[in-house]
Design a protein around this nucleic acid. Sequence first.
DNA 1: GTGAAAGCGCTAACAG
DNA 2: CTGTTAGCGCTTTCAC
Lengths: 353, 353
Amino acid sequence: MSLDAGDTHRSKPRARRGGVRRDPTAATISRVADAAGVSRATVSRVMNGSTTVAPELAARVRAAAEALNYEPSLLARSLALGRTSTVSLIVPDLANPMFQDILRGLSTAAGAHGHRLMVAESNENAEAEQILAVEARRRSDGLVLASSRIPEPQLRALHERLAPLVLLNREIPGTAVPSLSVDYHAGIRAIVAHLLGYGHRRLVYLAGPPASTSNTDRLVTLRAEAAGSPGFDLTELDCGSTFETGHAAARAVLATGATAVVAFNDMVAFGALSGLHELGVSVPGQVSITGFDDIPFARYTTPPLTTASIPKNELGGQAWERLWALMSGASPGYDARFQPRLLVRDTTGPAPA
Amino acid sequence: MSLDAGDTHRSKPRARRGGVRRDPTAATISRVADAAGVSRATVSRVMNGSTTVAPELAARVRAAAEALNYEPSLLARSLALGRTSTVSLIVPDLANPMFQDILRGLSTAAGAHGHRLMVAESNENAEAEQILAVEARRRSDGLVLASSRIPEPQLRALHERLAPLVLLNREIPGTAVPSLSVDYHAGIRAIVAHLLGYGHRRLVYLAGPPASTSNTDRLVTLRAEAAGSPGFDLTELDCGSTFETGHAAARAVLATGATAVVAFNDMVAFGALSGLHELGVSVPGQVSITGFDDIPFARYTTPPLTTASIPKNELGGQAWERLWALMSGASPGYDARFQPRLLVRDTTGPAPA
DNA sequence: GTGAAAGCGCTAACAG
DNA sequence: CTGTTAGCGCTTTCAC
């Protein structure tokens, strides 16, 4: 086999223009074709397992490919095919176990279908998220936006450019963009009922990121509940979504005189738990605490955290299903709103007399 | 502007061959060129901010691009340029906070340099990891392998195909592949010294994944320490790397009669802590426990976990530095071995009399 | 069954 | 400064 031969398929190999200087020994489909003494089309057919190639030729091609250590360029293939077999995920915060689980679920599901996952973190920044979303989408065949912080108008303006798109914990009313979410309203109602049942009347809510719609959901329901229950007193404290912010809020929590704290999520709950601990406050003796999400560590804290469990992994997996359907031109199915499950563990107890 | 005009740059727009049927209205560089009445080269120049374009022309191009909602195809661009501005990361287990932190560090650093991150999980499977590594590398400009489970011979055979490659917690002696790692030997020695200082003589090691070289490192040092210290008794228990496995090991730990358990990592330590708790064993009263990694939750357990802290985020960031250097043809700098810092918290105490 | 050629959408060397 | 052209590496239609 003449491995030294130039590309016999190019018409006039005169001056080198355009493109970029590549490694001239790199194995390309042309070199393999030359080496095997066939056309590039045939190599392509063999590499893609077409059966319409004479066994003898196919063998020769395979041998040449082997000898040259040839591997088709996925990039060129993507360009010709018009698809990348890659999907993207954008999350506000990679440090949040909630998003880590979504990432994992999506990665696993996509991987099972031969797709790769591209990830980007917006750092809770709506501007950055828009840029990232557009770019990520263009590098892949589909996009999943988890708990997007992009304001409704912008998101609405953007969604067509981002399609195929699947939204997690977010929706764009009036559009066909598939959305998978958690019913935070129901979760909060369950938590409140649980707390009221224990005799608590003064609650404090440790609020999450303002741009988070799931925070808004919680807030809305909390206020509605407060308005609807006589003697139910609600205080709102801006907090955040991390341990640190929860921890830092401990003193403020105490100052409200509340007997129960409803934390934005489990991490905040942990932080508060830890902070109160350090302040010598007994949980749930003096103060009860609830979280949200049921992240892996929630059951291992001391005491184990009462929280509302949500199907994090499932969210990622289902997101893939929806996205896949969209990418194959199928119907993505109905939107789903997962119902949180209240897990009563040991950070909640009767209100102190 | 004639938005309807076909591509005037193609010689004989006769029959449609090759490629794939695309949306004929899709904005491409050619359509923009036509609309603006310039050549594609000029459009390319404008889009890439070349200053050598007449302001008037540039304006026309920008207007046309705007009108057509044009965005250059990153795919085509990558093919022409020979680079993707994307790097890949492969980890054994996305559920492990250690790898989540590495992912985050890498993502942030790469993002700051305008690069995207592709992620894949090998599920602790060496075979799968090899496939993933090769494919991921071909889709991007560089690869980071975190705690690779690929056996040395295969990894050695593979590393050239994977370059630019950076290894985390792993190395290939005799090659120039940059490696960033943690000195598990030193970490374990510190832990053992701490435990011996407290009077412990019977230790049990909850071993991690067998394919993990960092597990081997720990084991080697542990055995050496045991061999070197009179009266030091070491038991090894196969465990794993998760909560669940640590939790499940509690009973076995008790059966060994050890007064201190050295867990593979923090998650295992948590599991064991929790399991022992349920068995009514007091920590550190009856049994001391140490972890490794100092994952975010380690300081929030009850009691807070004594562990060896490692710069997880830093690993991701430094990995980027090395990779970036490699990709730009620069020297990646010297390998580094980070020294763990022993964090004595409250799961360790004097051995019971 | 197989090859020639057109095409995916962009970049860059070259010539004016 | 701008257009022409060759090229990145692969796929697929069409014709033999």
